[in-house]
C-alpha cells in the first residue's frame, strides 16, 4: 500500500466562495468533502451521521462552541472530536491558523500528521481570501475618499469662486500643512463650509 491519505473532511463556513475553492483544492488531494454552510441547528446530527475525520471551521463561527460541547457531552458518540491544538506541538502552525481564521477539530484516533496537509491548505485559502477582502476594503475606502474630495472641491469652488484646479490646490496645501490625508481634510472642509 502506498501512502494514500484520503480523509472525510467536514467544512463549516458561511462564506460560499471560500468554501467552494477549498472544497476543490481538497478534492484534488483526494479527500472526501462534506460542506456545511447554513442552518447550523443540524450540525450535531451531521457530525454524528457523517463521522468526519476532521472538521475545518471558520474561527469566528458560533458553532465552534457547539463542536467543543459535543466532544465533551456525548460519551456515546464513538468518535469524539478534539481541538487540533491538543495534539499539536507546533506553536507556529497554530498561530498561523488562528491568524488566518482557521480552526480544526479532528476525530479521536486520527494521527495529527495525517491532517497537517489539510490544515495547511485551509490556512493558505483563508489567508488568500482575507488578503482579497482587505484589498477590496481598501479600494472601497479609496473610492469613498475620492467622492469626499470631489464634494469638498465643489463646495470650495462655490464658496471661493475659484476653478477646480485652485480648489484642489487649496485642499492639498491644507493637507500638507496639517499633516493629514486628503480625504480627511476634505471631510473637515465639508463640515465647515456646510455649516457656514
Amino acid at each position: 500500500m502506498g501512502k494514500r491519505v484520503n480523509l472525510r473532511v467536514l467544512l463549516v463556513d458561511g462564506d460560499a466562495q471560500r468554501i467552494r475553492q477549498l472544497t476543490l483544492a481538497l478534492h484534488q488531494q483526494g479527500h472526501r468533502v462534506i460542506c456545511h454552510t447554513a442552518d447550523i441547528a443540524s450540525l450535531n446530527q451531521q457530525v454524528a451521521k457523517e463521522q468526519p475525520d476532521i472538521v475545518i471551521i471558520d474561527m469566528d463561527s458560533p458553532d465552534r462552541d457547539t463542536l467543543e460541547s459535543m466532544a465533551m457531552m456525548s460519551r456515546e458518540n464513538p468518535r469524539p472530536i478534539v481541538f487540533f491544538a491538543e495534539q499539536q506541538n507546533d506553536h507556529q502552525t497554530m498561530a498561523a491558523a488562528i491568524n488566518a481564521g482557521v480552526s480544526a477539530y479532528i476525530a479521536d484516533g486520527v494521527q495529527p500528521d495525517r491532517v497537517t496537509a489539510i490544515i495547511d491548505t485551509a490556512i493558505a485559502h483563508f489567508s488568500a481570501h482575507a488578503a482579497l477582502r482587505e484589498e477590496l476594503a481598501e479600494i472601497k475606502g479609496q473610492l469613498a475618499g475620492r467622492k469626499v474630495v470631489e464634494q469638498a472641491k465643489g463646495l470650495l469652488m462655490k464658496h471661493q469662486g475659484c476653478d477646480e484646479a485652485a480648489a484642489f490646490k487649496t485642499l492639498r496645501k491644507l493637507a500638507m500643512d496639517r499633516g493629514q490625508k486628503l480625504p480627511d481634510v476634505a471631510a473637515s472642509v465639508i463640515d465647515i463650509l456646510k455649516t457656514t
Binding site: 474561527m59 469566528d60 463561527s61 458560533p62 458553532d63 465552534r64 462552541d65 497554530m94 488562528i98
Partner: peptide, 14 residues
C-alpha cells in the same frame, strides 16, 4: 462569536 475563539485569541496573544 464563541468562547472557543475568545479562548484561542487570548491564548495566542491576539
Amino acid at each position: 462569536s464563541s468562547w472557543a475563539s475568545l479562548r484561542d485569541k487570548v491564548s495566542y496573544g491576539l
